[in-house]
Design a protein around this nucleic acid. Structure first.
Lengths: 227, 227
DNA sequence: CAGGGTGCTTGCGCTGCATCAAGGGGTGAG
DNA sequence: CTCACCCCTTGATGCAGCGCAAGCACCCTG
């Protein structure tokens, strides 16, 4: 089913698949259904029963959440070569988070039954899943630390630093509102902070692309430019 | 080593041990070292190599975190019959979070080597660990949702509701500063909110103990009493 | 019992961020 | 080409929660 994609290369490139070992990786890929999602496409609806694990090959996917009073937020932004909905597949039951494409994306959908079946046969997949979950736990923990004890401007700077490519560029294909939600602030605040960073000479804004002349200055000077 | 504690009863009471099955549970208990920690005792130091998994039998333990600029916060408060440091033990390497007793506590310390050795032999322990990690992921995700889109007063109300015992009482053995840090606010704000809830008739404060006359009113009326 | 320490509370001014409300600018459709 | 829509921006205002600092209750020690 996946002949159209170079399966071995894919398995090598994707951290989770390579950690699971060649046997489990090829079994997973055999069961996987590739598909594309345009921007804003709903991939998974909250409160539904999770019946698949997803691997993101290219693009950007947002894990959305709904507060008790109906307000919406974004738990996390998933990048290429990451996977999502694993806790849901492991625990079963219903799942309170939704998933939506924030940029044109290519994904693999691995049915939960296949995932569980392969896990029973291949303990290396279970171990890889365990490591994966531990890493994702750490990711949320880091985010929680940031939310609890840093200001909005610092969170923006850190977010940009984390997306910095070797060329000194930051790609932001997803809408500003999504990034703002992920960072726990309003789009207005995000806009103000980013233009503040530009005024401080730390970044240069060019539409969806952001240039960072000095990476160190961005990390270190973020606190100062709180204004 | 654990004859002093009723091992079978313990395995049955602790969700993680019972999920791991009787064989793995008894193997884990055989390797476990019980110990007590007075309030404020440091159980694990951040930036150290994690060499054990901990089960909390009684008391309260805080997972502390340090921000980039040295400020301190509390990632999570661990309650009885929960375990902590599992992601650290799984991933190895150093670990950015510390653990400290917030109330007099009894714990079990399971050396990482023993944990890994038993996991290799007993796949049920690996599966139980995977579920455990997924649940802990969900716990952090819920907290992140709260941090991102609810106000401090609501977070306090929800925290109290989550600790509500059948008798309408909430035990708060840990210092207020720790609870405030866990909720992402200052001790002053926590104090103000709680006294605000008391003024609204939703709770009755009695030192370390809190009485909740009407549980439903607490959940539903929290938004209104934001003032 | 006095003394000092620790932890909780309260008051007050301030600031960061949300909220509400317009104003641009780029992109796609007709 | 031009309109219209969407998304991003910018401004003005209000409030929630922080920081600082003082007051008070409890606990442990000598």
């Amino acid at each position: 089913m996946l002949e159209l994609i170079a399966a071995p290369a894919l398995a090598a490139a994707h951290p989770f698949l390579s950690a699971a070992g060649p046997a489990a990786a090829s079994a997973l890929l055999a069961a996987a259904e590739p598909f594309s999602a345009p921007r804003r496409a709903v991939i998974f609806t909250p409160e539904a029963a999770p019946e698949a694990l997803y691997l993101l090959l290219e693009g950007s996917v947002g894990l959305s959440m709904r507060g008790a009073d109906g307000t919406r937020g974004l738990l996390e932004i998933i990048g290429p070569n990451e996977c999502f909905l694993m806790p849901a597949v492991i625990l079963g039951g219903t799942w309170p988070f939704g998933a939506e494409a924030l940029a044109p994306s290519r994904l693999l959908r691995i049915p939960a039954e296949a995932f569980h079946a392969i896990m029973v046969q291949d303990s290396r997949l279970t171990e890889a899943s365990l490591s994966q979950m531990a890493r994702q736990w750490q990711g949320l923990a880091d985010q929680l630390v940031e939310m609890k004890l840093t200001k909005a401007s610092e969170r923006v700077a850190h977010f940009l630093a984390g997306r910095l490519m070797p060329g000194g560029r930051v790609a932001m294909p997803e809408p500003r509102a999504a990034i703002a939600a992920r960072l726990g602030m309003t789009p207005e605040s995000l806009s103000r902070v980013m233009h503040g960073l530009q005024a401080a000479g730390l970044v240069r804004l060019q539409g969806r692309r952001v240039d960072v002349p000095d990476a160190k200055a961005l990390s270190h000077g973020a606190r100062a430019s709180g204004h």
